[in-house]
Simulated scan of single mutants.
Amino acid sequence: MEIDMKRVITFGALQGFTGILAEQELRAALAICAGLANKEIARAVGCAPSTVKKSIERVFYKLHVSSRSALVTEAFKRGVIVFAAAIPPAPDHQSNQDSEKGVFIA
């Protein structure tokens, strides 16, 4: 029996989900989406620039892309990466703010 063990990783205002990408690959993809260069990514995740380069190559392969901009587009399109604020709250935590604001007349 296979168990789905997706992890959520947050990087600034972005969140990513493991599954298609391994954790290290996802961290690199999140950093690329945040606009970081390879050396900046290496500092941010605590690894060598050569490790970052290999991780990015694996992400390119897994997402079937050949550029950083295509990586960003494909990662968002597939839902691998989202803006942290874009994740909807659980139904039991949603408030009915509209009904408290007054009457809407069209």
Rank of each mutant, 00 (worst) to 15 (best):
A84G: 01
K53S: 15
E25S: 03
K62T: 01
A44I: 02
K39N: 12
T10S: 08
E2G: 06
L36A: 09
V80K: 02
S50M: 07
A31G: 08
A13K: 14
S99A: 15
L26W: 02
V65H: 04
A106T: 06
I41L: 05
K62N: 09
G102E: 03
D98F: 13
K101F: 13
G79I: 05
A28V: 15
A42I: 04
M5K: 14
A37Q: 10
G35N: 10
P49H: 08
V80H: 00
A29G: 03
A70K: 12
P88R: 11
G19Q: 06
A106M: 04
T10K: 15
A84I: 03
E25P: 08
T18M: 10
E23W: 01
L30Q: 06
H64D: 14
G35T: 04
G46F: 04
V8I: 15
T73V: 12
L21A: 04
I41V: 14
E2K: 13
L63H: 07
L30W: 10
S66E: 14
A106N: 06
R27F: 03
V59R: 00
L14W: 03
K6V: 08
G46S: 07
G35Y: 06
R7W: 00
G12T: 05
N38F: 02
A13P: 08
V45R: 05
V59E: 09
R68K: 15
G46T: 04
S50C: 06
R27Y: 03
A37N: 06
Q15R: 14
V103Y: 13
A13I: 11
R78W: 04
A42L: 09
A48W: 10
D4A: 06
N38D: 13
H64W: 05
A90N: 08
D4H: 07
E74N: 02
A29K: 02
R43I: 05
N38V: 11
A85D: 14
N38W: 01
L71H: 09
R43W: 02
A85F: 07
A44G: 01
H64C: 07
H64R: 12
T10D: 06
